[in-house]
Design a protein around this nucleic acid. Sequence first.
DNA 1: AATCCCCGCAACCGCCGCAGT
DNA 2: AACTGCGGCGGTTGCGGGGAT
Length: 295
Amino acid sequence: MGRSPCCEKAHTNKGAWTKEEDQRLINYIRTHGEGCWRSLPKSAGLLRCGKSCRLRWINYLRPDLKRGNFTDEEDELIIKLHSLLGNKWSLIAGRLPGRTDNEIKNYWNTHIKRKLLTRGLDPQTHRPLNCKNSITGPITSICITPNNTNPNPITSITNNVVSDVYFNAKPNNWNTSEPPNLAEAATSGSGTTEESVSQSHSQSQTQQEEQKQYLDLNLELSISLPFQPQQQGSAAESKQEQQQQRREGQKSPNQKICVCYNLGFQSGNVCDCQARARMVISSDNLHRFLIPLDA
DNA sequence: AATCCCCGCAACCGCCGCAGT
DNA sequence: AACTGCGGCGGTTGCGGGGAT
């Protein structure tokens, strides 16, 4: 059995809102404030579902909404945030004052997707479309190399890395034992809750600047061509090698390595690699989680 | 002028996480 | 620990406007 409906559907209006309904909702929230959406319709004299009232207020009636077209700066910010956060529209909206998640989602689907395609980029992965080695799906494999000196830093761990993302630059104050919390940096600042706002206010300016630096750094990361091992020998030999790697606990072709944890994407935050990982490899102060693709 | 088609956007739906009991 | 209810989120739908034929 599923959950009971949030309201009595037989007695609720659906579809476009009338001016009168809008006015009732505005008047009610001006007097009583937001909250308790379930009981709001009855109290406000609206024949609407509470969810519908909430959506109408948040996406259309809220006084602090910014109207008008998106600016180029907003476009680029959305693209950068999407490359970091994926389809986390509410998080992205939190970084764009006056914009709603629904608005950004629509804008993404109607404008930015096309914009990225004309740039030759995959809107989901932000990788070049014509990259013959490109993989589908979100980036889950990240590798940090000090000063990017090692072109293939985890070859020693695995012979079959699907793809890697490298940071090209490493700030002088980057301490791999105390990684920046990128997820927090991404959501702080213009956070949507009072709590997050108060948290961000309580941070020292230096800390905020550091976080911004890390966020910018992450957003500006360059993506390397996926490492593809040279195919040598017969197919039988290759299969034998793969079986050998599995026996030895090494990464097989249908596994990915993630070091998100070291970037601050700790479990329960953005990345759940730690929870899903079947194996952890630690080296150079980095924890690399092996995650089967079918997990 | 009429029809068709495409696009943008508001709204809905179902699921999920969390807090309260 | 299990259950319930609510708010919030992301995916999807469908309507209306405008351009093309």
